[in-house]
Write a protein that binds this DNA or RNA. Structure first.
Ligand code: FES
Ligand code: FES
Lengths: 140, 140
DNA sequence: CATAATGATACCATTTTAGTGTCATTATGT
DNA sequence: ACATAATGACACTAAAATGGTATCATTATG
């Protein structure tokens, strides 16, 4: 079971690089190379981040991507929700129908608490904090 | 993203029922009916729990399953690991190769902490605690 | 107008999860 | 003995999620 899928992981690392490049325009081509990610896949990811307002893109020759918002405002939770949908640890359903005891169920309550905690933790991890470590964009 | 898959969920609810039935032998057929789960699927799950030592089975007419260990000793973590493999939230790898900065990486460290916390929480949830609520086996 | 970039989107491949089916084995009761 | 009702083992299929590719359109630069 994975909390973070590859797409999200790529997005995080890509944003780390872009954040470090301070206003320089980054192209998919260059980034894919330096991070050793499949180019078309990365492209799709950056496009998504663009439509979500996290990156800003410019087309045409000399175009590419730059950050559109403060890296301190980009949380891993946000990225997870963009690429993996709403954060839900368990539906806890009864074969399609919502479980009848869902209000009082101990198990469900525990899971909800875990979910809340994890969500909070993920919200605290931001691109800024990650890039501070000065580790991400090294190749090999 | 799901922390608990359907298989694990079924296993938990099935164990809940079995735990409540106090030494009575439970058959797949009856259980599948009362919990509204696909019979063959449930059967595979109980078989698995049998080989893992959590249930004890008896074959032949009048056979079925009973608990083999104290429900207070069956944790959700254990069940998750049986049906979903070792609990790991993120590999955090660099395209197949293990990430070179894995020791110092802030992101990885945060994820590890989350993983540890969640694991601990899941270990605390036991079948006994779940059944105490007296909610699980109701149908509809 | 060639070129180098993204936008949109359809498509394909792989992996994981969910679920079924079948035949063998075993215990029970008549 | 035999019908029956249960599990054991395991192969198989189906569906969903994830990962990844490909193509054509659009746009800005020089
Ligand atoms: S059994 Fe469904 S909410 Fe707990
Ligand atoms: S970037 Fe790989 S361990 Fe953090």
């Amino acid at each position: 079971m994975k909390l973070i899928t590859k797409q999200t992981d790529y997005a995080i690392r890509a944003l780390g690089c872009i954040a470090k490049s301070k206003d320089a325009i980054i192209t998919v081509c260059g980034l894919a190379e330096s991070l050793d990610m499949p180019q078309s896949f990365l492209r799709k990811i950056l496009q998504r981040l663009n439509t979500k307002g996290i990156l800003k893109s410019s087309k045409g020759k000399g175009g590419g991507f730059v950050l559109n918002i403060n890296p301190a405002k980009i949380s891993v939770l946000q990225l997870v929700e963009i690429f993996q949908g709403e954060f839900k640890l368990s539906e806890h359903v009864f074969k399609g129908k919502i479980c009848p005891v869902i209000k009082t169920c101990y198990f469900k309550n525990r899971l909800d608490k875990i979910e809340k905690d994890v969500k909070k933790q993920l919200q605290l991890i931001t691109i800024k904090k990650i890039t501070k470590q000065d580790d991400l964009q090294r190749k090999k």
